[in-house]
């Protein structure tokens, strides 16, 4: 951080001003002139929060994707299918048992198992052949998509939010002040906040696991130099399987989250594959903090775009990707 400020004082100043401006926009009561110019504060605050919570969902999908890439140099283009499969499993379980939480656990386990099978049966056989692996995953994603269409049909499924999560809560953010001087606080859907917190917890646990545990050390070592790690006697294949299972399982969890606050249907697989590709390209391939940053940027861009420039909202995310590729092709937070 300090090094960044030393090396780019101008950029650091601009970033500081932007952050201060954003904080002011979020915390202060807007003067009437501003409300006239860009609309009500409630809309802005909602869009920001929606962007961040949507970013949490993108992070769940993209973190598994980037973890697998970081360790195995394997661009798993079937990652979207794992997301969709997780959503369907979560739906089936939550309908069958009536438990939302159980849906998460079983979706994680089921999709992680699929990941293990994929790693053992497919990727281990073509280790080190990046292009072949990528082509195979494209093929697999098409096969999975058709299998799921066959089993679940083209219908859209929505996972029931448990009753204790339905409805809004009041946040300590003032959106407006009534003429009587009474402050109006922001009301926001509880379920999105819970999912956001859960994503942060998962992110922190992953960061701790990677940076503070022995297994995490092996994974990091594997990211840096796979061959050298294998030469020290670490059962590298086991680490690969574990990481693939974790990455796939996270996509499964994301599927349940997506099915809860949006819905799942055929086509969602490619949508989320595309989203996670954009997220990791912006954030930096193989970097977990990069995935988090990229996810929040893309989520915010989508939501703010849909409010303030609805016609061009779809273009904004790709514009960001193009900009990042042009100015910092390795991604914002990539190490190399």
């Amino acid at each position: 951080m300090t090094r960044f400020i030393e090396r780019h004082p101008a950029w650091a100043l601009i970033a500081l001003i932007a952050v201060a401006l954003l904080l002011w926009l979020i915390l202060a009561v807007w003067p009437p002139g501003l409300e006239e110019a860009i609309g009500r504060k409630r809309v802005f605050l909602n869009a920001v929060l929606n962007g961040i919570t949507l970013g949490a969902l993108y992070f769940l999908v993209a973190s598994g994707f980037t973890l697998i890439f970081g360790l195995m140099r394997n661009v798993n283009l079937a990652h979207g299918s794992l997301y969709l499969f997780g959503g369907y499993v979560g739906y089936a379980i939550s309908v069958w048992t009536g438990s939302w939480i159980l849906g998460f656990i079983i979706a994680f386990v089921a999709v992680a198992l699929v990941g293990i099978v994929l790693q053992i049966a497919v990727f281990r056989r073509m280790e080190g052949q990046d292009l072949r692996q990528t082509m195979v995953t494209i093929g697999l994603s098409i096969v999975f998509a058709d299998l799921m269409l066959w089993a679940f049909g083209g219908d859209f499924y929505q996972i029931q939010t448990p009753s204790w999560l339905i409805g809004p809560v009041e946040l300590p953010l003032v959106t407006a002040v009534k003429s009587s001087g009474e402050a109006v606080y922001l009301r926001y859907p509880l379920v999105r906040l819970v999912i956001f917190v859960a994503a942060i917890v998962i992110g922190i646990v992953m960061w701790l696991a990677l940076n503070r545990t022995r297994v995490g050390m092996m994974v990091r070592a594997g990211v840096d130099d796979r061959d050298m790690l294998a030469a020290t006697g670490v059962p590298i294949q086991l680490v690969f399987v574990a990481v693939f299972a974790l990455g796939a399982g996270l996509a499964g969890i994301a599927g349940v989250v997506g099915g809860t606050f949006q819905s799942i249907s055929p086509g969602e697989d490619t949508r989320f594959l595309l989203a996670s590709l954009v997220v990791v390209i912006v954030g930096g391939m193989g970097s977990i903090p990069g995935a988090a940053l990229g996810a929040v940027i893309i989520g915010l861009a989508e939501q703010l775009g849909s409010v303030y420039i609805p016609t061009y909202a779809i273009v904004v995310t790709f514009l960001i990707m193009v900009l990042v590729l042009a100015l910092r092709p390795q991604g914002l937070l990539a190490r190399r």
């Binding site: 909602n46 869009a47 929606n50 949507l54 859907p189 606050f261 989508e302 939501q303 849909s306």
Partner: peptide, 11 residues
């Protein structure tokens, strides 16, 4: 095909 209507609803 919009999935996330949260901002639309807020507006």
């Amino acid at each position: 095909g919009t999935k996330d209507f949260a901002s639309v609803i807020a507006a």
